[in-house]
Design a protein around this nucleic acid. Sequence first.
DNA 1: AAGGACGCCAACCGCACTGTT
DNA 2: CAACAGTGCGGTTGGCGTCCT
Length: 330
Amino acid sequence: MGRQPCCDKVGLKKGPWTAEEDKKLINFILTNGQCCWRAVPKLAGLLRCGKSCRLRWTNYLRPDLKRGLLSDYEEQMVIDLHAQLGNRWSKIASHLPGRTDNEIKNHWNTHIKKKLKKMGIDPLTHQPLSSTVTDQYSHDDDQQQPEEKQDKTTSSSSIHSSSNSVTEPKDDELAENYSPTSTLFVVDEDGMELINDGFCTDEVPLMEPHEIINVVSSSSDATTTTSHSYSSSSTSSSSSSNNFLEDFQFMPEFEWPPSDYGNNINGGSSSSSSNTTTSAPMIGLWDDYFNGWDLLMDDVDRKQMVDPSLTHQDPQTVLDQDDYWPFDLL
DNA sequence: AAGGACGCCAACCGCACTGTT
DNA sequence: CAACAGTGCGGTTGGCGTCCT
């Protein structure tokens, strides 16, 4: 028995989102919060399926998303986490506030994979490519190895031998025990020291001041903050930050969508814009929604006045509450 | 200048998982 | 317990921009 499609696709629009559609979606979510994605397009007046709306929101429209290329530091984190977690992008993304699984997955496939291969590191196993391994796969770099097609029901990490014991630690353990660099020094062909997964020591990313600030600001308890508090907050699509308001207000690298956003939404803008890792906050489409956020915040404040238990709740939490949803479930 | 090749990434597809009835 | 709905997740693709010849 086949699974029914997530939505009736007849008459639904596909392909790139237009600015108008984005506005509708943002406007709707600002007004009503995230709930029942299946109902969203209908209520928001969009000819999209709910799944598409959810994806657009989580991967592109969420205000807490960072844009631009991953920093060296983030890239190193991705490599380390990939060594432990495999292709579980959402798990990896949960350690990188403001980054989405899709973004990380794309970055991995387009940048990191090549980088590692160039360094003689097998991006699958995170081990130095031996001659036999190289021979085995060199004829087709992108051809998936048999092991790469992993049974999703079983762990993927058996092939990631860097820290893999026979018994795989649970994800939570991995997350808690994650440390960015398990020191492994190798000397590459240029005589440069490679550290851990092949990063040249020259490239070992330093924690930038704004990142430190972010760690502090995103931690609910500054006294427990360390420079490696990767798990201090998560803004992944599957989880919401417990300190959304704080993150939202203080996260220094928070970046609004670019002001030329409307001209670039149909793809292709990335290569030019993404070359700048950070820039001054840019207000674009979201300009129109500052008022919306204000209203949202006001609404949260109002709720807090009524219900003190909401004092430290972030808007997302509030929005996620069933009683916030102003519509009857369809 | 033209056009083919390549790189990049937003979006789609379909399966898996979880909760509900 | 089975059927179903809703959502999450990872793999793949389409199309645009840039590079190269």
